[in-house]
Design a protein around this nucleic acid. Sequence first.
DNA 1: CCAACATACGGAACCGCGTTCCGCTTTGGC
DNA 2: GCCAAAGCGGAACGCGGTTCCGTATGTTGG
Lengths: 194, 194
Amino acid sequence: MPPQKRADARRNEQTLLEAAASVFVTSGVDAPVRDIAARAGVGVGTIYRHFPTRADLIVAVYRHQVDACAEAGPELLKQEPTPHAALSRWIDLFVDFLVTKHGLAAVLQSDNASFRNLHGLFLERLLPVCAELLDAAVTAGEIRVEISPYELLRGVGNLCAGAEGDERYDARRLVKLLVTGLRGTQPGDVTPVA
Amino acid sequence: MPPQKRADARRNEQTLLEAAASVFVTSGVDAPVRDIAARAGVGVGTIYRHFPTRADLIVAVYRHQVDACAEAGPELLKQEPTPHAALSRWIDLFVDFLVTKHGLAAVLQSDNASFRNLHGLFLERLLPVCAELLDAAVTAGEIRVEISPYELLRGVGNLCAGAEGDERYDARRLVKLLVTGLRGTQPGDVTPVA
DNA sequence: CCAACATACGGAACCGCGTTCCGCTTTGGC
DNA sequence: GCCAAAGCGGAACGCGGTTCCGTATGTTGG
């Protein structure tokens, strides 16, 4: 068993998470590390002892929400009338999450080495869920297009990038288009357009 | 009439464009300005006298290709059997262009002030063309989904971001999905899937 | 309660990047 | 050949992530 961390260290870690979360809200996920340190009233060194890289901090801040999103998957599969509906709702959740975090989607697709972790966390948690929902929809015959869970997730993530602050661009609409497109062309299907 | 530029200046501008193009190919669009200067055998100052910002240099390097893409639009409208086919082909061109330029799509969606120009050039040249094709497809009754040219262009661009170097992610497939999705669900339609 | 040691802290320093600035060089019209 | 004007090189600046290390502080055995 590793020895307990010092009390002040644990306190600082908490403070940092809160400071980061709050700064992310106001200045976006791209906020300078120094700003977060300042907000938390600590030195930058302290950040880096707790979170080896910027990306780790971001991961830590959003871990709970990502988990929540992941856990919602199976629930939706039970509640919604069809697997495709569940998939669609779940993707809505994902999109809501991304779109409300200024700059998150953008940073998610940066292949900067330091952000691998971020990408990694999202994949690790969400990919299995996405796969489950997608599989269900496929075996239910609701999806007639070849697509991998990974591709779907990335596609949706990409569509969400830079979606804030541009009233001409509505990520949700495009994602909906994509998800609807998944079912391929079905004869006699009634698709509400508005 | 503005006075002629000095001979060495014109020569340098050319050299710079070539150097930049070549560096972009090997190191991606994100290559450091210093690398480009070194490759061209000039100082960084020279770059900035010719191209006020990084983005302007990128714009200059790709202007011809963007123009070519823009000009292909009306052509396709004449050649292809239907407006939707023309739109689809045109978007293929656009995607090809983006995907083969390492990092371009990513930089295109960065809302960094300095990249506004880039975004701007693309929009200025391509938006009208996209609008024309989209309009044609709409009035031909081939598209039953509300979408603006801007949104389409951005969506496609976004889907292309980070597409290189990830064999699990095929931007073309997703774009195709999106474009197919534009027609909405049509009864008895024959959509070639492969 | 008090050393004495490990642990954690602050923030200066470092590196890479875009961009700016300025003293020097080159060009081209006379 | 002369000399503005135009252009050039690259040092210097600001900013952001990350590292380092001298100092402070929590912890623990006496």
